Amino acid sequence: MVRKGVEVSLEERQAKAAEDISRKLRSVPARKDRVNESLEALQEFADSGGTVLQPKNRSRATSLNQQLHKNCAEEAEYLRKLLSDIEKLKELDAKARTQLPMSRQQLMKFLVQQGELLPLWIGGVDGFPPPSVGAVEQPASAPLKTGDAVAALVEENWILAEVEAALPGGKFELKDVDDDQRSQLILPRNCIIPLPKYRADPLRDNHAIFPRDAFVLALYPQTTCFYRGIIHKPPEMATDMYSIMFEDSSYTSGYSPSLPIHQRYVVSYRDPPDARER
């Protein structure tokens, strides 16, 4: 009965979020039109000889440029907020699905979808992507939030887990995503690696992409475990995946043939901390 109540609450939140997004989407064309109108006005001014910045033209040119910049900035800010709302709706959808029992096949399909739906970081013209974008790691001092996806070191294995709660003493309660029994995991911060929250665009933010031959921890396909591997080929487009060769002693090279892995499931390789440090 309690579970049913939670599901209804989530459904209501999902419905309201979807309705808000639908309403906001209807305003997008009008904002685009304002930008186009400003561009056309500036082009007409230039075609009429306005590019010759005589004293009489300077004020008009400045006004047109300022209006164009204002309309572009307003459209960009509106779209960023709309994208944020869409991401929140996707999180609600994911939360609703994880509260229901899933077969092994359903879980694997869900993880692939989570990798495909990782949002793309869209920054400004200048600046470096913040932590949690692609290969840009969170500092060890950064707080972890409930629901954060992480790689967690459990009995010498890195597994896919989710943060349940922060505990006193710098430890965290985690949930193994592949444990239907929801067994309690308590780990210190140095046994936890947060996963990226955004994809990096190689064409805009290549410095947030792991380079070829970099050692990484990556989620092996059709499992919930991370293994050490090497980047065979980094993504070239925002929609591309990494091509990763995993360490495998059964091959003469010591590495498996390359496999495609989503950015969501690739983090910097880290040696397990000494048992005394855990």
Rank of each mutant, 00 (worst) to 15 (best):
K32A: 09
D178C: 02
Y251C: 08
F226Y: 14
S84V: 12
V6S: 04
P196C: 01
A149N: 09
T62N: 13
V266L: 10
R270W: 04
Q43K: 10
I159S: 00
R23S: 11
A218P: 03
I244A: 10
V150E: 00
R3I: 05
A96T: 03
K175Y: 02
T51S: 08
Q99W: 07
Q14P: 00
A152Q: 01
K88P: 00
Y78T: 04
A161S: 14
Q184Y: 04
L174K: 01
L83E: 15
K233M: 13
Y227F: 09
R189L: 07
Y198E: 01
L82H: 08
V6G: 04
P260I: 04
V163T: 04
A140H: 01
G127F: 06
F110V: 02
E19C: 02
R204S: 08
A73F: 06
D274Q: 13
Q67C: 07
K95Y: 14
N57F: 13
A135N: 13
V177Q: 01
T224Y: 09
F246C: 02
Y255Q: 08
T98M: 15
Q99C: 05
E37D: 14
F45P: 13
E11D: 05
A94V: 07
R13N: 12
M1V: 06
A275T: 09
V35M: 10
Q184K: 15
F110S: 03
